[in-house]
């Protein structure tokens, strides 16, 4: 497994990656696109975005997102 941007997020990343890889191979590629790892993803993402902020790359990311938006329809943020 690759590392996370911040050491404190490594365990959450590990858990998320394991969940994602299992879901991707066993469900998603077989046509079942119901998300399964939302809970662990929310915790992992919160940790990473905290690190992004403390490393002061949040502005770079925000600018890039303005230029090339991620979500054309909805993002996981908007579902909350």
């Amino acid at each position: 497994m690759s590392r996370s941007i911040s050491e404190e997020c490594n365990n959450l990343k590990k858990e998320y990656d394991a969940c994602f890889n299992k879901w991707y191979s066993e469900k998603f590629l077989k046509g079942d696109c119901n998300p399964e790892c939302d809970e662990i993803f929310a915790a992992y993402k919160e940790c990473v975005l905290g690190a992004v902020k403390s490393k002061q790359i949040d502005k770079l990311l925000a600018d890039a997102r303005k230029e090339d938006p991620f979500a054309r329809v909805a993002s996981s943020d908007e579902k909350k």
């Binding site: 990343k13 998320y16 994602f20 992992y44 990473v48 975005l49």
Partner: peptide, 23 residues
């Protein structure tokens, strides 16, 4: 490449297309 993180994800229920944003 020392680290990779997913920072957003979305599946379109109609098309079945998954989008991932990574840092």
């Amino acid at each position: 490449v020392i680290a990779i993180d997913v920072i957003d994800q979305h599946v379109d229920p109609e098309t079945g297309i998954l989008r991932l944003e990574r840092l």
